[in-house]
């Protein structure tokens, strides 16, 4: 066997990546590189007029209050969902893992929202929360709980929590399924051994089971991060293109959409396409750094655990 042949054999498997690599490069990487080039000009997305402005679009985004407010809302949504998933999600997964009767029925139902589109989810919750056709407030007042009724989506305090509830409703199934599969990896003998040692249920869970759930914790955290930095549809359907009220639900997704395609149908005077692309590039870089950091940090914790 010559050196060349050995080389070929050594890297032989990499040829399998080629067909996928072609699709990936042509339809994803190449458009992205083009987008980078669009982010350094000043262009409204339609006309002829475009001039090279270097990093001005990035500078403007990084010094704009609107950008940071939107990014902050993304982070708040991410953290809130994360808490919900690691508490309620984990709790429900543990309940299901105890294999109660009808376990599969429960599991089927609890995972159902995940397969609904975010547009459908948005409409479902419009029906519940809308100030005009929402059924929650009339229901609360009819059963004598009128004091709990709130102007959910049009109140500066309640709008963002409402969006979070809807997003959590849509995504909780992930946490349940991921944690369930993690729990299945916990050997029964280990828990039984702990039981013999006299540990109660909570101690058993906290000291024996939970550390073994680290891989589930890691994937769930990363998935949640990616999903919630990109959140768009739910916000767009529930509170509209400008993140009503008064920007309280504006997220990066709506900001980019508004800049790229406008918020009002009657005029496009506010469209700044290349600025939108620049913000999208910033989101990409931010996600790249954060997910790498998250993965690295969480993996290290796993190893230590």
């Amino acid at each position: 066997m010559t050196a060349l042949q050995r080389r070929l054999r050594q890297y032989g498997h990499l040829w399998f990546t080629l067909p996928g690599l072609v699709f990936f490069s042509v339809f994803l990487v190449y458009p992205m590189l083009t987008a980078f080039r669009l982010s350094v000009v000043d262009w409204n997305g339609l006309g002829n007029e475009s001039r090279f402005v270097g990093l001005d679009n990035f500078r403007e985004a990084l010094t704009s209050v609107t950008f940071y407010r939107a990014a902050w809302h993304n982070i708040v949504i991410f953290l809130a969902i994360l808490v919900v998933q690691h508490t309620i999600g984990l709790f429900l997964a543990v309940q299901l893992n105890a294999r109660p009767r009808f376990m599969e029925v429960y599991r089927t139902i609890l995972f159902l929202p995940v397969i609904l589109s975010l547009v459908a989810t948005g409409f479902i919750w419009t029906l519940i929360l809308s100030p005009n056709i929402g059924i929650l407030n009339p229901f609360l007042s009819d059963i004598g709980l009128g004091f709990l009724a709130q102007p959910w989506l049009n109140d500066i305090t309640w709008a963002l929590p409402s969006v979070i509830v809807v997003q959590a409703w849509n995504h909780l199934g992930w946490a349940i399924v991921i944690y369930m599969s993690g729990l299945q990896n916990v050997p029964r003998e280990l828990r039984e051994a702990a039981q013999i040692d006299g540990a109660n249920g909570w101690q058993r869970f906290w000291n024996v089971t939970f550390p073994l759930l680290s891989p589930a914790f890691t994937s769930l955290t990363v998935i949640t991060f990616i999903q919630n930095i990109r959140v768009f549809d739910v916000v767009y359907v529930l509170t509209g293109p400008i993140g009503s009220p008064a920007g309280r639900t504006d997220v990066l997704g709506t900001l980019v959409y508004r800049m790229a395609f406008g918020a009002a149908g009657v005029t496009s005077a506010d469209i700044r396409f290349s600025y939108a692309i620049a913000i999208a590039v910033l989101i990409f870089i931010f996600m790249l750094i954060c997910s790498t950091g998250l993965l690295y940090g969480l993996r290290r914790r796993e190893v230590e655990a």
Partner: peptide
Amino acid sequence: GKVFSTAGLKAQSLFL
């Protein structure tokens, strides 16, 4: 050109 869209964007803050 931009007065209308800016008014639309800022009106909620004015109302509140």
